[in-house]
Every structure is written in C-alpha cells, then in structure tokens.
C-alpha cells in the first residue's frame, strides 16, 4: 500500500463548490463548500463522511451529473468543470461510475447482455470484424461471471452478482478513472469481500484510478492509498492511509474512528479514546459559523466559533483543517482552504 508520490495527478479538484437553491430566495443548501483534492494515477482515494456530508455530490460533480457552482475540476490536465451536458464523448468514455444500489442502477427490463452492450454501442467499441457478443463474454469474464449470464435479467441474480454486472458495465469502455459510490454498502460482508478483492485486481490489471466514496473507515484501511474525511461540505483531513490511521489528527476523524464497532482487542487499541461520539451533523442550509464541527467538538475554543480554519499541512502529505493545528502553519506552507 506504498504511496507513490511520483505518480501523476489524474484528477485535480480546486475549491469546488456546489450549492442547491431552496424554496426560500437567497438560501442555499451548501452541499459542497470549497473542497480541493487530487487523485493520482493508479491510486485509490477514499472519500469518507456521514450522510449529508456532501461526498456523493462531489462524485456527481466529477462524473458530470451536476454542473459546478464554483471551482475547477481538471482531468488529465484538461478543465472539465464547464457545462456538464456538453462533455465530449471521449471524456465520458474515460470517466465511469458504479452506483450504490445495483437493484436500481440496472434496468430490470433489459437482459445483462443488453445492459452491457449499451455503452459499447454508444462508444462504437467493437471495431470492424469483431463480434459484440465476444466482447460481452470477455467483459463477464473480467468480473468472473459465466457467459450464460448475457441472457439473464438482473432480478434473477444475487445482489453481489448484480454489482459485478454494474462494475463490468463501467469497465466496458476501458476507462482510466472510476468513481465508486458506496459500491458495497448495500451488500453483506462475505459478498463485499469478494467485490473488494475484484476491484483491487481490476485496478492492477487495467491501471485504474478510483475515487471511492464510502462511510466505512475499516474498509478504507484495507483499500485506499489516501483517505479524505468530509464534514458538512468541506474536507476535514486528508492523508496517506497508513499515516491517517496511525495518527489521526482532526477531532472529527478521532470521533469517527472511536465510533467504529470492531472485532478484536488489537483493533480496539487503535481507536482514539478521548473523543466519544456526541451530537449530529447539522443541516447544510444553516451551517454553524466558524468551524462547522464546533457544536460537536470536545476541544472547541472561542476561535472555532468565529473563524473557519484553513487547511494546514502538518507533516508532508497530511493535511488537517482545524485550529488545533494552526500552529504548524507558521512553519509550513499554507494551502488555501
């Protein structure tokens, strides 16, 4: 799980904002409120947060389902934050997505073959002299499903197999970047294990980069190259996975880690003890002034109620957005929040 710092950035997000208007004029749901991160070639960035933290909105902005309110998204050096509806076909081919619930993301009226054939037809993939069916069988093989599944319907296969079909569909166009929006949270652990191992294998095989959205930190420990924690539309902490779990900095990260139910004493020792969970995530319409986390933070001081902290690099590649670590800013370069 060594972090390859030499790798190129494949996706760069700069100060991304996505506001949704409410019925009241001038009042907005600030789903994503100025976040910056990068995804490097061949790595997995885990984007972790509670429901309502804006992680799915971030994913939808990257994939182009929503237009951005402000900020920039660069993919392979090209600005793609313009009109999401006018993205070129070649870009859509290169950026694919797997959704949380395969029960609703696969059309129940179509056979698996038809589902997998659609992206191939749109992107005119099997060239002259190649049979569509051969390509479909090959796709099913990559996700370890037998060829006769082309004729099955999504309802007749299990939840895990459906998600494998959804993954095969995302891989149909040979993308280099895949957004995975909680691909295993609707599945049982024994099925999850199989899918996760397959995703790791496919990543190596096709040199894929993943943006992995999840709320499961234990899973990220075993999968992600780097982890980013989101809270109320902002990134609270971002660090390489090994460093992140060894020395979590942000009080919210510590609260998240201490809340995870674990199955062994060794894991229990890794959980920070001093930040027990309390309070709930506030509504993104009425974001608290200052640091958005201060109503739940046991270490909140006066400054947290007034000033929103900026992102600080505490040690190389480990960024925290918290006033507790603002001292480190004097010594190091400050990265705009």
């Amino acid at each position: 799980m060594g972090c390859n710092t030499m790798a190129k950035d494949i996706l760069v997000v700069e100060n991304l904002k996505k506001y949704f208007p409410t019925k009241k004029k001038g009042l907005y749901v600030k789903a994503v409120d100025g976040i910056s991160f990068t995804v490097r070639e061949g790595e997995t960035l885990g984007l972790v947060g509670e429901s309502g933290s804006g992680k799915s909105t971030t994913a939808y902005n990257v994939i182009g389902m929503y237009g951005v309110t402000a900020g920039k998204i660069y993919f392979k050096g090209v600005d793609i934050s313009g009109d999401a509806g006018k993205r070129p076909l070649s870009l859509k081919k290169d950026l694919q997505m797997v959704f949380q619930d395969p029960g609703t993301s696969l059309n129940p009226q179509r056979t698996i073959g038809q589902i997998l054939a659609l992206p191939l037809k749109v992107h005119k993939i099997p060239g002259e002299g190649e049979r569509l069916e051969d390509r479909l069988i090959q796709l099913l093989e990559t996700v370890e499903l037998p060829p006769e599944y082309i004729y099955k319907y999504p309802r007749s296969i299990g939840g895990g197999e459906r998600q494998m079909v959804a993954i095969a569909r995302a891989l149909a166009t040979n993308p280099s970047f895949v957004v995975l929006d909680e691909p295993t949270s609707a599945l049982d652990v024994s099925v999850q294990a199989k899918i996760i191992n397959m995703l790791i294998r496919l990543q190596k095989q096709f040199n894929l980069s993943y943006l992995f959205i999840t709320h499961d930190l234990s899973l990220m420990r075993n999968l992600a190259t780097r982890v980013a924690i989101m809270y109320l539309g902002k990134i609270a902490e971002i660090a390489p996975a090994v460093d992140f779990f060894r020395s979590p900095k942000h009080p919210y990260t510590q609260m998240l880690l201490s809340s995870i139910p674990v199955i062994s004493g060794a894991e229990e020792e890794m959980k920070p003890k001093k930040v027990p969970s309390r309070g709930e995530i506030p509504s993104p319409v009425n974001v608290p002034p200052g640091c958005g986390f201060h109503p739940r933070c046991p270490m909140a001081r006066q400054i947290c109620l007034e000033v929103d902290p900026i992102m600080v690099e505490t040690i190389p590649d480990h960024f925290v957005r918290c006033h507790l670590f603002a001292g480190a800013a004097e010594a190091r370069e400050v990265v705009g929040a």
Partner: peptide, 19 residues
C-alpha cells in the same frame, strides 16, 4: 469465514469472502 471477511482497522487486506 464471516470473521475473516470483515475489513479490520489494523489492515492486512480483505479475505476472499465466502463463495
């Protein structure tokens, strides 16, 4: 099998799952 499938906070990867 079930125990080995659970991702651990201590790392070490994820087991192959139950076929």
């Amino acid at each position: 099998g079930l125990l080995s499938c659970i991702p651990k906070l201590t790392g070490g990867g994820v087991a192959e799952g139950i076929p």
